[in-house]
Design a protein around this nucleic acid. Structure first.
Lengths: 187, 187
DNA sequence: CTCTAACATGAACATGAACTCCGGTTCCGA
DNA sequence: TCGGAACCGGAGTTCATGTTCATGTTAGAG
């Protein structure tokens, strides 16, 4: 769905990137609410060109979300490098949430009611989930996370934080509270 | 905005109730997504009648939300009756969340991006906030909630839980985790 | 340089949902 | 019982947005 990267005429490839960049920025700011016409204008193109590259709005959004998931997966890999399991966990958590804070489209995709149907991006997502699971396990094994903590709980906490991303940095206070609740015996 | 209850012709009052009931049920099930035509049909009326009683969809939604806030305020008052401050707090929290679980429109109003603009219902909301503040203070004073816990934190937690109300009762697990983080020294 | 398949364009179209409007109906006081 | 003010119904209007397609424009192979 995302792309036939190769064998595009030079102008076509350039335009494709322009669309992706414009869409990423606008979606990040205002989520699903942006209109196709706006994206086209921002990219300096006609709407028709958008539809040459992406079947519909959903597909464009999916491409953007997929991109973000790749970025976040890199971020998770980096977090996993840390020796201290707790540092790894915190780095992952905050990295993830800071990305979400910067991208309304991403939040939209994860919080919205149709979240399940975003499995277009399953590939990117499962990579991320795998790494998350590993990091969580490390922290649990080291006694830094409560023994019954599971990767699913990471999703719960994360969703909760994203729901508190209106206006000021209230979500940081929220995370502070939650971290207290999920800590294990070792500190 | 909500109502001139008195001096409505008998049929008008009856129809108004029918609209309110139909809207409450449909909004509770599917939130903002229901259409005015559906509500009219469910109430056994024409759309015109809806618009005779409510200026627009927003106003109708606001009326429903206001109703829910009244119910929840009663619930909070009841919780405040409990002698044990922790019991009062837990009763409030779970009562609130169970109401939210049963009403998608309510969640929509509180989670949506335009939450601030729902101040049409300020009256009902402030009553509730007052009681919440009292209950929180009691629990803090008794050492059952961490010393720095504020009523605002109740909102954070609550929003987080509502964001996890897709499908199964995942939000209960979530609350379990969070409660651990906000407890005070006394148990 | 030429020719054509690939590409771009944006006005026009399709869709869907909120809202209006006026002819017809009903309530209710006298 | 009767008059008319209040009320109802629902087809039609309006508006906002995603999507198409006939026409014009280029990249790039030969």
């Amino acid at each position: 769905m995302t792309a036939p990267e190769r064998s595009l005429r030079a102008d076509a490839r350039r335009n494709r990137e322009a669309v992706l960049d414009a869409a990423a920025e606008l979606f990040a700011q205002r989520g699903d609410a942006v209109q196709m016409d706006e994206i086209a204008e921002r990219a300096g193109l006609g709407v028709g060109t958008l539809y040459r590259h992406f079947a519909d709005k959903r597909a464009l959004l999916a491409a953007i979300i997929g991109r973000r998931f790749e970025a976040i997966t890199d971020l998770a890999r980096a977090a996993d490098e840390a020796q201290d399991p707790w540092v790894a966990f915190e780095t992952l958590l905050y990295g993830y949430l800071e990305s979400a804070e910067a991208d309304a489209a991403f939040r939209f995709a994860l919080l919205g009611p149709e979240e399940p149907s975003w499995n277009d991006i399953a590939a990117e997502k499962t990579d991320f989930s795998e790494i998350t699971e590993r990091i969580v396990r490390r922290a649990v094994d080291a006694g830094r996370l409560r023994e019954d903590f599971r990767a699913d709980d990471f999703v719960l906490i994360t969703r909760g934080a994203m729901a508190n991303m209106t206006g000021a940095g209230a979500w940081r206070r929220y995370v502070t509270l939650v971290l207290e609740g999920i800590r294990g015996p070792e500190r």
